[in-house]
Amino acid sequence: MSAAVSEGRRPATPSTTEPAWVRRSLIALALVFLTLFLFVPLAAVFVEALKKGLQVYWAAITEPDAVSAIRLTMIAALVAVPLNLVFGIAAAWAIAKFDFRGKNVLLTLIDLPFSVSPVIAGLIYVLVFGLQGWFGEWLRDHDLKVIFALPGIVLATVFITFPFVARELIPLMQAQGTEQEEAARVLGAGGWQMFLRVTLPNVKWALLYGVILCNARAMGEFGAVSVVSGHIRGQTNTMPLHIEILYNEYQFAAAFAVASLLAGLALVTLLVKFLVERRIQRSTISV
């Protein structure tokens, strides 16, 4: 955002600017809003987390239940992100470079997780794989547990983070067209050579950006995971769920301590995103 604004910066002319007092009050309003709704809450997380000292903080994030929640969140993200990376590239490739029947249906399907409430997404999996669901009995007979277990959490996370990579790649790939790929083919490149040497380098920054967003969402997802997890402490609690439980039990310092980890992750994500965006801008300006 900020990069895009500064790029279009021009000396203000009387015809496009407002009186100084209007400008100043608009800026002040925006700053007050940002402070109240973004900076204060973020600061509050860290302040609350460290209120009772570093020792309490450390204890809160190293107690077995917290460690288990952190591990589970990591596992879910580690499965969901690579899966959606592969899926996103494949879908974007198909949509951007080929014409086929049902292309718009596929596009709409990719957007489905954005438009469906996460809680509904979780419920869908309960209805399909839960004990009373379609495959419930079959799964029980074969001693497979999906709902209230790791597979369910991973499934819900994959579903929720489905669109991020594909959505990031499709517009860019569409804009780039197929000429470079055709050039590569004519020059004798095989399918993989074309993909690895031409297509992938052309979208690498957008791809990284998509992965960052996908990862942030995978780790932070609450609604869908909450429905399928069953909240079993030390077993099926992810970080967001663990935080909720701690908070409900009035263990504020511990809740904020774990929350600070997620918030820290968000900040790191934003930083990486900012750096990547700067890269994207440089490479698109130069092309």
Binding site: Q180, A183, A184, R185, V186, N202, S283, S286
Partner: peptide
């Protein structure tokens, strides 16, 4: 395409930007 051994020049060059 690969087996035809043709050289093709595109209107908009299609150079590999990276």
């Amino acid at each position: 395409v690969r087996e035809r051994k043709v050289g093709f020049v595109f209107q908009h060059y299609a150079l590999f930007g990276h």
